[in-house]
């Protein structure tokens, strides 16, 4: 679909996509959205923090601890969190540990399909510095070079209690109005894109996914 935004910051070429399909994709960079009135924003942030919808994408072994977390033992639905199967509706992306290059590609696509207030939680040491797989040829070392990360939960594997603590941290960040990862991604779009393109050698997808 064509963009409905008229303001094009930086024209994208979508060079990775075959020419006859380029018109199907967005040709505009994302733009940062300013915060609204202080008090309105505070209320909205409260709602955002208390209704975190998690994208149901288990990107790594961290996904195994999400199951106890989402079910009876550590039930995070009592804090208003829910798994959503589609990126369009979710607001939290949990990167469950190491990211292989192949997964990173899908992660970027999923992340870009999420709508503006969106938050990223990096789970496990491998998102911080590569962890156990720091010298592997296929896993990225630092997640924050490719996506803006709001909270890291260290450990291998982090316990569910640690993940809940991470979510509490995320909530307080959101309520304080500091979790502006989506805007940061839009502002430093070129930097993120160049990092992503540096390691994804066959860039056969649109530059920005609606």
């Amino acid at each position: 679909m064509k963009s409905t935004e008229n303001k094009i910051i930086h024209p994208l070429e979508n060079a990775g996509v075959p020419e006859d399909q380029r018109h199907l994709y967005c040709d505009a960079s994302p733009r940062p959205y300013p915060a609204l009135n202080k008090y309105v924003e505070r209320f909205l942030n409260w709602a955002r923090a208390n209704s975190l919808w998690i994208l149901g994408y288990g990107t790594g072994c961290g996904a195994i601890e999400l199951r106890p977390l989402l079910t009876s033992r550590f039930d995070i639905s009592q804090y208003g969190m829910n798994p959503r199967p589609t990126p369009r509706q979710s607001s939290v992306f949990i990167i469950g540990g190491y990211l292989s290059v192949k997964t990173l590609k899908r992660v970027i696509r999923s992340y870009e399909q999420m709508q503006n207030p969106k938050f990223v939680v990096g789970l496990g040491s491998c998102t911080v510095n590569g962890g156990m797989y720091w010298d592997s040829y296929n896993t990225v070392n630092r997640l924050d070079y490719y996506l803006p990360v709001d909270v890291y939960v260290a450990g291998c594997m982090p316990r569910p209690e640690a993940i809940i603590a991470g979510f509490e941290k995320l909530k307080s960040t959101i309520m304080a109005g500091q979790a502006e990862g989506a805007n940061e991604y839009a502002e430093r779009f070129d930097w993120y894109k160049s990092n992503q393109k540096k390691i994804i050698k066959d860039w056969d997808m649109p530059d920005y996914n609606w």
Binding site: V101, V128, N129, G130, W134, D135, S136, Y137, N138, T139, V140, N141, R142, Y145, N195, K198, I199, I200, K201, D202
Partner: peptide, 25 residues
């Protein structure tokens, strides 16, 4: 999208490749 020599060959140095590519912290 792998462009190097096949990674399981002994002469492929995974550590060097990782340090070169993945922005080590």
């Amino acid at each position: 999208g792998w462009e190097e020599i096949p990674p399981m060959r002994r002469d492929f140095d995974t550590r060097e490749y990782s340090e070169k590519t993945y922005f080590p912290r």
